[in-house]
Simulated assay, not measured.
Amino acid sequence: MVNKELLIQEIESLPSELLNEAFDFIRFIKISHAKRQITDDYNSSLKTNAQQQAEKTLYPLHNTQPYRYENPTEPVALEDWEFLQ
C-alpha cells in the first residue's frame, strides 16, 4: 500500500502537461504485462503438449488394456501350438 500512496503523491505533484504522458505509460505497462502473461500461458501449454507427445513416444502402451494370461505356467499341448500346424 505504501507504493500506491507514493505513486499517488507523485501523480498529484506532476504538472498537468505530464499527466497524459504518465497515464499513457501506466496503460503501456498494463498492456505489456497482459501480453507477457498470455505469452507465458501459451508457452506453458506448448510445453505440456510437448511433454505429452514425449510420453506417448516413450511409453506407447501407457493407458492401454493389459494382456491377461490365465495359468501362464500350465503346460501347452502340441495341438495348441498354431505355428506347428
Rank of each mutant, 00 (worst) to 15 (best):
N3E: 15
N3Q: 11
N3G: 09
E5K: 08
E5W: 02
L6N: 09
L6P: 00
L7F: 05
L7R: 14
I8Q: 08
I8K: 14
I8N: 09
Q9W: 01
E10V: 08
S13Q: 12
S13R: 08
L14W: 01
P15D: 04
E17W: 01
L18K: 14
L19I: 10
L19A: 06
L19W: 01
E21F: 04
E21W: 01
F25L: 09
I26Q: 11
I26K: 06
R27H: 07
F28Q: 14
F28L: 11
I29Y: 02
K30F: 08
I31S: 10
H33R: 11
A34R: 13
K35F: 05
K35M: 07
R36Y: 03
Q37K: 14
I38D: 09
I38N: 04
I38C: 02
D41V: 08
Y42R: 11
N43D: 14
S45T: 10
S45C: 09
L46I: 15
L46Q: 14
T48I: 02
T48Y: 02
N49E: 14
A50P: 01
A50V: 10
A50Y: 02
Q51A: 10
Q52Y: 03
A54V: 08
A54S: 15
E55P: 00
E55W: 07
L58S: 12
L58Q: 15
Y59L: 12
P60T: 06
P60A: 11
H62C: 05
H62T: 07
H62S: 12
N63V: 01
T64F: 00
Q65D: 11
Q65M: 07
Q65T: 14
Y69M: 08
E70I: 07
E70C: 03
N71D: 14
P72W: 00
T73R: 08
E74W: 04
E74G: 00
A77I: 00
L78V: 03
L78P: 00
L78M: 04
E79H: 02
E79D: 14
D80M: 03
W81Y: 13
E82K: 08
E82N: 10
L84Y: 01
